[in-house]
Lab assay of single mutants.
Amino acid sequence: PQEEYKKRAKKALKKGDEDTAREALKRAGLSPDQAEEFIRRFL
């Protein structure tokens, strides 16, 4: 589910792994723009 992928993305970002985070967010159904926004907000 979407929440699970978002959790995964946050874990990846904590490790500084933005590529894995983007992949997880893409799987969560976010557009690339939404994924970038999510990452920017998190960092």
Rank of each mutant, 00 (worst) to 15 (best):
P1M: 15
P1I: 14
P1A: 14
P1E: 15
Q2W: 13
Q2M: 12
Q2P: 09
Q2K: 11
Q2T: 12
Q2V: 12
Q2A: 13
Q2F: 11
E3H: 08
E3L: 07
E3T: 07
E3Y: 08
E4F: 10
E4V: 06
E4K: 08
E4S: 07
E4C: 10
E4R: 08
Y5M: 12
Y5F: 12
Y5D: 07
Y5E: 13
Y5P: 04
Y5A: 14
Y5K: 03
K6L: 15
K6Q: 10
K6I: 15
K7D: 14
K7C: 12
K7Y: 06
K7F: 05
K7M: 08
K7Q: 13
K7G: 07
K7W: 06
R8H: 11
R8I: 15
R8A: 15
R8M: 15
R8Q: 15
R8Y: 11
R8N: 10
R8K: 14
R8W: 09
A9H: 02
A9N: 01
A9Y: 02
A9F: 02
A9M: 02
K10D: 05
K10G: 06
K10N: 07
K10C: 13
K10P: 00
K11H: 11
K11N: 13
K11C: 12
K11G: 07
K11Y: 06
K11T: 12
K11A: 14
K11W: 05
A12F: 05
A12E: 03
A12K: 02
A12G: 02
A12M: 05
A12C: 04
A12L: 08
L13D: 01
L13K: 01
L13W: 02
K14E: 15
K14F: 10
K14S: 13
K14C: 13
K14H: 13
K14G: 09
K14M: 15
K14L: 15
K15D: 15
K15I: 13
K15Q: 14
K15S: 13
K15V: 13
K15T: 12
G16T: 02
G16V: 02
G16F: 04
G16Q: 05
G16W: 03
G16A: 04
G16P: 02
G16L: 04
G16M: 04
G16N: 06
G16H: 07
G16E: 03
G16K: 05
D17V: 02
D17G: 03
D17T: 02
D17P: 02
D17I: 03
D17R: 06
D17Q: 07
D17S: 04
D17H: 06
E18A: 12
E18P: 11
E18K: 14
E18V: 15
E18H: 13
E18I: 15
D19S: 12
D19V: 13
D19E: 13
D19A: 14
D19I: 13
T20I: 07
T20S: 12
T20F: 07
T20L: 09
T20K: 09
A21Y: 02
A21M: 02
A21D: 00
A21K: 00
A21E: 00
A21R: 00
A21G: 03
A21H: 00
R22E: 02
R22K: 07
R22F: 06
R22N: 04
R22A: 03
E23A: 08
E23V: 07
E23K: 09
E23Q: 08
E23F: 02
E23W: 05
A24Q: 14
A24N: 13
A24H: 15
A24F: 15
A24S: 08
A24C: 15
A24R: 03
A24M: 15
A24D: 11
L25G: 00
L25Q: 00
L25T: 00
K26N: 09
K26V: 10
K26W: 06
K26Q: 11
K26A: 14
K26R: 13
K26D: 08
K26Y: 12
R27V: 09
R27T: 09
R27K: 14
A28Y: 04
A28Q: 03
A28F: 03
A28G: 08
A28N: 02
A28D: 02
A28T: 04
G29N: 04
G29Q: 03
G29K: 03
G29P: 00
L30I: 04
L30P: 00
L30D: 00
L30R: 00
L30Q: 02
L30A: 02
L30E: 01
L30S: 01
L30K: 01
S31N: 09
P32R: 08
P32G: 08
P32H: 11
P32Y: 10
P32Q: 11
P32N: 10
P32V: 11
P32I: 11
D33Y: 08
D33A: 13
D33E: 14
D33P: 07
D33M: 11
D33T: 12
D33K: 11
D33H: 10
Q34T: 04
Q34A: 11
Q34I: 05
Q34C: 08
Q34M: 08
Q34E: 14
A35Q: 10
A35C: 10
A35L: 10
A35S: 08
A35Y: 04
E36I: 05
E36N: 09
E36T: 06
E36G: 04
E37V: 05
E37Y: 04
E37S: 07
E37T: 05
E37I: 07
E37Q: 08
E37D: 11
F38G: 00
F38C: 06
F38Y: 08
F38L: 05
F38I: 05
F38S: 01
F38E: 03
F38A: 03
I39A: 01
I39T: 01
I39L: 05
I39W: 01
I39S: 00
I39E: 01
I39P: 00
R40P: 02
R40V: 08
R40C: 10
R40A: 09
R41N: 14
R41D: 14
R41Q: 14
R41K: 13
R41V: 08
R41T: 10
R41G: 09
R41L: 09
F42T: 08
F42N: 06
F42H: 08
F42E: 09
F42I: 09
F42W: 10
L43S: 08
L43T: 09
L43V: 08
L43N: 09
L43K: 12
